[in-house]
């Protein structure tokens, strides 16, 4: 029973990791940009939700924050990323690092530095099994994380827009030659990434309040993305869930013997993955001809 409790708890946290990491991987696939500002996207999403929750019920605020964050993501791509595309990759990476500082400063200017919290809650979905309560927020994490990721994977494979995204991911030049408006596709993917981060940020804020600590949680997308494979959307879902479970089991079995190990476990896994399967579990190995 105890094992099952920790498994479900880990899956719930992992679903949230997957949700946030999915946007990160989509951006990497379409534009080859490692978005270091993913934590700040979470932050912006949480603050957007906070503002909207002052004006409307929380569930509605979360729903409105998603398209608002989408527009924000499109804007970021247009202003920060697109002018640098085609330039040295280091320049683009530096731009996203600059974005980290810009967004943190912007959030502080707009919303101030005070600690905030979301008013209201989502409908209670607590599941009671014997002595174990799967809290409502875990059920929401699982539902939103798993279902949304699965739906997006399906869309990428089956929908027309998904095919366009995959085409741009394969070769932007070929996509342009076929008449696909690649910049618009890339912009939309950045928007989607921001929207997913906003949803993740909103859910995290619901649990622990709105504040700059949320940006640090964005760091979790790196082990998830590397484990799943930087170019594998389905891999992200599996890796997110896996990492959540590993953390949960580490808390159960290792933490008492090696205090603080749970924090390090995801990055130890990344190290092993990079050593033995650099493309991640589900990523495709690429052979480059020189």
């Amino acid at each position: 029973m105890l094992l099952l409790q920790f498994l479900i708890t880990g899956l719930a946290t992992g679903a949230l990791y997957a949700l946030i990491a999915l946007g990160f991987v989509l951006v990497y696939r379409t534009s080859r940009v490692v978005n270091f500002a993913v934590g700040e996207f979470l932050l912006v999403g949480a603050y957007l939700t906070y503002t909207l929750a002052l004006l409307m019920p929380l569930p509605l605020a979360l729903l409105v924050a998603v398209p608002a964050a989408f527009l924000f993501g499109v804007l970021v791509e247009r202003v920060f990323v697109r002018p640098l595309l085609g330039r040295n990759l280091v320049a683009v990476i530096m731009a996203t690092i600059g974005l980290v500082v810009t967004l943190q400063g912007g959030v502080q200017l707009i919303w101030g530095p005070d600690q905030k919290y979301l008013s209201g809650t989502l409908p209670d979905l607590t599941v009671q099994v014997g002595g174990f309560a799967l809290p409502s927020r875990s059920v929401w994490y699982l539902m939103i994380g798993v279902l949304l990721c699965a739906w997006l994977v399906y869309l990428l494979r089956k929908s027309r827009y998904g095919v366009l995204v995959r085409a741009v991911s394969e070769s932007e030049t070929a996509a342009l030659a076929l008449g696909i408006n690649a910049p618009r596709v890339v912009g939309a993917v950045w928007g989607l990434s921001a929207a997913l981060a906003a949803l993740g940020g909103g859910l995290l804020a619901l649990a622990g309040g709105v504040g700059f600590h949320l940006a640090a949680l964005g760091l979790k997308v790196f082990p998830v993305a590397i484990l799943g494979g930087m170019d594998s959307v389905a891999g992200v879902l599996v890796a997110g869930l896996l990492l959540g479970v590993v953390e949960s089991f580490s808390m159960l079995y290792l933490e008492s013997r090696f205090a603080g190990i749970t924090e390090a476990v995801p990055f130890l896994i990344v190290l092993l993955v990079l050593l033995f399967r650099p493309q991640g579990i589900f990523g495709q190995g690429r052979i480059e001809r020189l």
Binding site: L2, F6, T13, L16, G208, S248, A259
Partner: peptide, 16 residues
């Protein structure tokens, strides 16, 4: 129990 300064969820910690 030692934890990071911020966490996404504390259910596992509470169970422990």
């Amino acid at each position: 129990e030692v934890t990071p300064l911020s966490m996404p969820d504390a259910t596992a910690l509470a169970l422990k």
